[in-house]
Design a protein around this nucleic acid. Sequence first.
DNA 1: CTGAAAGCGCTTACAG
DNA 2: CTGAAAGCGCTTACAG
Lengths: 361, 361
Amino acid sequence: MIFKLALFNANDCIKIMLKKRITIKDLARELGYAPSTISRALNNHPGISKKTKEEVQKAVKKLGYTQNSIASNFRKNTMLSIGIIVPRIGIHFHSLVISGIEEMAYMRKYNVTIFQSQDSLDREKEIAKILQTKMVDGIIVCLALETNNYDHFNQLKDNKVPVVFYDRVPENYEASKIVINDYQSAYKATEHLISSGCKRIAHISGNPEVSIYKERLKGYKAALVKHNIPLDEKLIEYTKDLNYDEGVYSAKKFLNLEHKPDGIFCANDYTAVSTIQVFKKANYSIPGDISVVGFSNYPISRIIEPTLTTINDRAFEMGQAAANLLIRQIEEKSEIISSETVVLETELIIRDSSKSFNSHK
Amino acid sequence: MIFKLALFNANDCIKIMLKKRITIKDLARELGYAPSTISRALNNHPGISKKTKEEVQKAVKKLGYTQNSIASNFRKNTMLSIGIIVPRIGIHFHSLVISGIEEMAYMRKYNVTIFQSQDSLDREKEIAKILQTKMVDGIIVCLALETNNYDHFNQLKDNKVPVVFYDRVPENYEASKIVINDYQSAYKATEHLISSGCKRIAHISGNPEVSIYKERLKGYKAALVKHNIPLDEKLIEYTKDLNYDEGVYSAKKFLNLEHKPDGIFCANDYTAVSTIQVFKKANYSIPGDISVVGFSNYPISRIIEPTLTTINDRAFEMGQAAANLLIRQIEEKSEIISSETVVLETELIIRDSSKSFNSHK
DNA sequence: CTGAAAGCGCTTACAG
DNA sequence: CTGAAAGCGCTTACAG
């Protein structure tokens, strides 16, 4: 042991004892090269002799050097780092999106720093400011519920930091966006109910001030109009949050209607699940007496009985697409950052809560 | 507009046109101070006159300066940054933990960089190496399923980077850990079944090579022994993953037993839900004929019918505790990083899938 | 109260 | 093939 230590010079010894980080300078001193040579050897530059590179690698092992990528990236003025702002990580949809982002980012050597806005506009602004100072190369954001103004992203844009929004995206604001076609998806879901024989189709809507729920509502209405089914405002329930309890409340209102619906399209799976449970409890058969279609393809949709017909909202793919687009924009480094909108195709997953007709149009 | 621009000096003008980042040097030139003075004014140092500070703030506004916190932290040799390694972000438990970590970290001005090991040991090693280079101040990790050796964390420890493990934690390895008491929780769950009248209690176990499932199994057995109920290996089913389908498979085996169980303790909620569904389909009444208890308190446990008695595993609090402990260890900066283990109290949530007795011991 | 200088760990023209 | 020097944007002893 003593003998081994004797192979180190005094300075290195001290560093090792104090667990100070070994730097390029230490390698340089150890081998008698200039730090610039070490740097080039480490980065496998062409104009460095093979012999030198090998020597350097040996010294790396001996002294236990690990690169300081912060210093390196700082010098190169790129952090290979992307920031994410989501409302809440614990919401399953967002956790899948994040998962998709991380996966894509990891492949491309970027790392992902995550912030929760908690659906608060103030906090979202605060985070945007923090991100400003962090040298992130780009950011991905799903807007807070409260957010109705997007000025806090202007400075990022001015600084040429690309921003990609997903799911809850700004309206009338020039930016890149990843969305699904909510209108088309709702249309498809409603039409499925129609073609499976439903005549009176109700809708449980989210807050119609939020664009995605507005679009779903529109798609529902359009499908009815298209198939000459009269709209009936009594068949539309508006919720604040689309949570389970609001679903129960809405379903009960439908249940108490004189002229009850025979199909219900719900703007998410939670309200669809509570609708199923409310009608089952009231001894309705599903899909015999009433069909139910949800939206999102949450895990519970495969477990509830009957299993739930729903729209696959492609959360994971949305994350991948967001990261992909963002990284492309980062690496283009063009003077003008283009604003692109990617619309992901959704998919109607037909399960047991709706009748399936082969004569499906 | 022209007039306004005339107020800037040439160099600043160019920077603004090219959208180059404004630095302390630019402020210094603008005001005729030295960069060091600007830095001190910005950081509100005592020995800087109020007048100067105000001038600096004005120039900050005028030129649109934002601090480069990477440069600042790099100079100060702390990144205020913590790294997380989780198996998969999309698993609800982990997303709640991450949420708790982010919340605590945000309050303490740390930011959180996230990696998924995808339950692969190789990837976990790779990530540990990456983290090595990133100047993170500490890391939080839940081990990959595959991980059976912890050497890849040694260098981090050697470099005095605190590491806190949660949930799936290393065995026989000196480290800080946040866990729940799996043994005690399983004991409590099983005893609840016993005291509500069950005589033959089955168990659906996870992979018993994984310590948390081993502990749950032990707790189940201990409760039976304590209450003089004979162990019966036919009443224990081992699964690989504790997923829904494995639950169905296990429940059916119990259902086909000659001498059927009247209570089942499942090592997670997914298998508990499939157990409920299998027995309901076979026309057993729950909890009349058979009681079911799960583990984790997933959202589905409040929705399934009957609602599921389960153990609250405190995912969110686990994240908070992990971040809290980690940040304490970071800020202590003592020569020796202490290894602490925090055991969180779980809670038995009694719902409708088990009989509740007031004569509960 | 303010400034000049050195430095965090690295990279990269420039020169030889 | 290698080195000396400057610099990324900031901070901080040291000096006055």
